[in-house]
């Protein structure tokens, strides 16, 4: 049964992606574009040369972390829609430290990263606490927290970090994750050391969930709160802890963007979508740490490669969006695929 489950965990996402690509191909065909050319462009746009490879990794980095943020909370049965807001406050906090603190790199950089994570954790703590103590549904609270994060951050950028400007100054070099070495390897792409932090975070999540008592308790609460309570676990502590740690992951994602990719923060006219994409990444990765890494890579590659489709294959940008959306659709409807496979199996027996 367990081997079956494992096989399922791998098979279902793979089939979803394939179905998405096939339907995407049909749509391209029916609108008079060459799907093979389109997908070749997609592939080249993501892995074609060192530059795009670097950009793909760059795009994957925050997605791994937001994917972890959603997956982690999900292990405790919580739906963290708030990764988006946690990313934004993490980004702001990290850049803020990068701007105002003056210290050698060995202190400055970890401090900035840590503050970003802390800010994200705080943004997760509030919904967690409300859920644990008062039973307020975390979905509603986290959605609201997203808006609070977005508009508060915009106001802080305008009136505190700058004088009515839309972009903050660049952070000092001692807080930057950017790497001249990685950039020179990849034709000035914006790839930065954050990828190692993201991979390490994935390992940490796996370790907490699979190898510690805390992780066991978190999972137990996710399976059945009442049973966990009955067996002596502190349910409300576990719920809060889970949201805080989820927030920490998302806050780190924001810190990666702030310290690595951009080196500054700009007024955002809308959400970054990193947090929302994180939901899809976690779904596709079956809420497993390593699954999330692979799913984030797929998303990063799709998003990066999509940029190449209009220029080299003539596929309009709108169509590219539809194809990406289709893949997400099939991923989200993995339940359907699961059901179909089981159905076929039953018939066989």
């Amino acid at each position: 049964m367990t081997t079956n489950n494992k096989m399922f965990g791998i098979l279902v996402p793979v089939i979803s992606v394939l179905l998405g690509l096939i339907v995407g191909a049909i749509i391209m065909l029916s609108s008079g574009h060459n799907p093979i050319k389109g997908y070749v462009a997609l592939w080249n746009g993501a892995f074609g040369d060192m530059y795009t490879l670097g950009e793909t990794v760059r795009r994957t980095t925050p997605l791994i972390l937001t994917g972890l943020a959603v997956a982690f909370a999900f292990k405790t049965g919580l739906f963290n829609i708030g990764a988006e807001g946690q990313v934004i406050v993490g980004w702001l906090a990290a850049v803020w430290i990068g701007l105002v603190v003056d210290a050698p790199m060995i202190i400055h950089l970890p401090l900035a990263i840590f503050t970003g994570a802390l800010a994200g954790g705080l943004w997760g703590f509030l919904p967690g606490l409300l859920k644990a103590k008062l039973g307020v549904h975390e979905v509603i609270v986290t959605i609201m927290m997203n808006y609070i994060a977005l508009y508060t951050t915009n106001e802080i950028i305008r009136s505190v970090l700058t004088d009515q400007k839309t972009t903050s100054e660049a952070i000092s070099a001692t807080a930057s994750l950017a790497s001249a070495w990685l950039q020179s390897l990849t034709f000035y792409s914006r790839v930065h050391y954050g990828i190692f932090i993201a991979l390490f975070a994935a390992f940490i999540m796996w370790f907490i969930i699979q190898r510690t008592t805390y992780g066991y308790e978190l999972k137990a609460v996710g399976f059945n709160q009442h049973a966990s309570n009955y067996s002596g676990m502190n349910v409300s502590k576990n719920i809060t802890l889970s949201m805080v740690l989820a927030g920490v992951f998302a806050g780190l994602a924001g810190a990666m963007e702030g310290l690595g990719t951009y080196g500054s923060i700009s007024v955002m006219s809308g959400f970054t979508n990193l947090g929302f994409d994180g939901i899809a990444v976690a779904l596709l990765g079956s809420n497993h740490a390593f699954g999330v890494v692979l799913a984030a890579l797929l998303f990063g590659a799709l998003k990066e490669g999509a940029g190449e489709m209009p220029t080299s294959a003539g596929v309009p940008t709108e169509l590219v969006d539809i194809i990406i959306a289709l893949i997400i659709f099939f991923v989200a409807s993995s339940y359907m695929i699961r059901w179909a496979i089981l159905r076929f199996k039953k018939e066989e027996n």
């Binding site: 700009s266 979508n273 209009p310 220029t311």
Partner: peptide
């Protein structure tokens, strides 16, 4: 030609694509 940016993160890859082409 033009390259459409759907988000801020797209600016740089779009610019670089033209440079490389």
């Amino acid at each position: 030609d033009y390259a459409q940016s759907d988000e801020t993160a797209d600016y740089m890859p779009n610019i670089t694509r033209f440079v490389r082409d």
